[in-house]
């Protein structure tokens, strides 16, 4: 089996007094597709947003490809030297330092994120949307970034839309541009937050086709969605969340057709 790419460990997150995530553990292996299902309010979008640190966690940690997201562990030697003086011998390695925004931004270039509402930059053309982050965050030469961008547009079937503005495109086209924009950074993992929920039913297929194509080429992905059929077809692992915890996870056949938990069964009976 391939190594763990995304490691979510004991993550808690509250908004005010509302505890949205209450101890989530999740591992995603490189090259695999994980689909997160669950009723609204179950914390699946929040979990996704903690993975690229759009939301800070209250406790627990997340790492991608072995690198902690949003924090730096203090160097063992210094922590070890200081720890006895502080009298905290048992918690020697347990210090996390919050990263500065600049470093968080750098980490995010390894994590592609596709939003429910696309969030394309409306005042920039499709091509400019795609090259913005590679040029400004990764300092790629403009020519090279444009070349990559055109190749990606071709891949999502929008090679002829490079000069268009986002509002001149359909919802499905906009979401495909947003996927290409996320891919332009060559991320280690792609996160999708309900990528088809804002689309008209007849446009859902074209976006899912692009995601399926990415799955075939071995992109590591975490997809929050309500499309059960898509989960069955594409997912390596299906995760069912409810009430801020992972209720059940496993291969789609097991979770979708043969759920062990009552809550999973109740949810599936409503959406299938």
């Amino acid at each position: 089996m391939s190594e763990v790419m995304v490691d979510v460990h004991g993550v808690h997150k509250s908004f005010g007094t509302l505890e949205v995530l209450r101890g989530v553990d999740l591992q995603v292996r490189a090259g695999e597709v994980t689909v997160i299902l669950g009723p609204s309010g179950s914390g699946k979008s929040t979990l996704l947003r903690t993975i690229n640190h759009l939301e800070k966690v209250n406790s627990g940690w997340i790492s991608i490809d072995g690198e902690l997201i949003g924090y730096r562990r203090s160097e063992d030697r210094r922590a070890a030297r200081r720890a006895p003086a502080e009298g905290g011998g048992g918690r020697r390695a347990g210090k996390l330092h919050e990263l500065k925004e600049k470093d968080v931004l750098k980490q995010r270039t390894h994590i592609g994120f596709v939003f429910q509402n696309f969030n394309l930059f409306p005042h920039l053309t499709v091509l400019e949307n795609l090259i913005e982050a590679p040029v400004s965050a990764l300092r790629r030469p403009r020519g090279q970034a444009e070349e990559t961008a055109r190749r990606l547009l071709d891949r999502v079937g929008l090679a002829d839309k490079a000069g268009a503005y986002p509002r001149q495109l359909s919802g499905g086209q906009q979401q495909r541009v947003a996927i290409a924009r996320a891919l332009a950074l060559e991320p280690k993992v792609l996160l999708f937050d309900e990528p088809t929920s804002a689309l008209d039913p007849e446009l859902v297929g074209e976006v899912l086709d692009v995601i399926k194509d990415l799955a075939r080429t071995g992109t590591t992905m975490i997809v929050v969605t309500h499309e059960i059929g898509f989960a069955r077809e594409v997912a390596d692992t299906v995760v069912f969340m409810d009430g801020g915890v992972v209720v059940e996870q496993g291969p789609p056949a097991a979770v979708l057709d043969n759920p062990r938990q009552e809550r999973t069964r109740a949810f599936l009976s409503k959406v299938l």
Binding site: N52, L54, E101, K102, L105, K106, Q107, R108, T109, I111, F113, F115, N117, N119, L120, F121, P122, H123, E132, A133, S136, A137, R181, A182, L185
Partner: peptide, 27 residues
């Protein structure tokens, strides 16, 4: 300016000053 614009810029790792100058201010 729609909050999603800043989120998208942050998610793409665009440097802070650039987010302001290129994404937020023009809108």
């Amino acid at each position: 300016v729609d909050h999603g614009q800043l989120e998208a810029a942050a998610a793409l790792g665009i440097p802070r000053l650039r987010q302001i100058r290129r994404i937020v201010l023009p809108q």
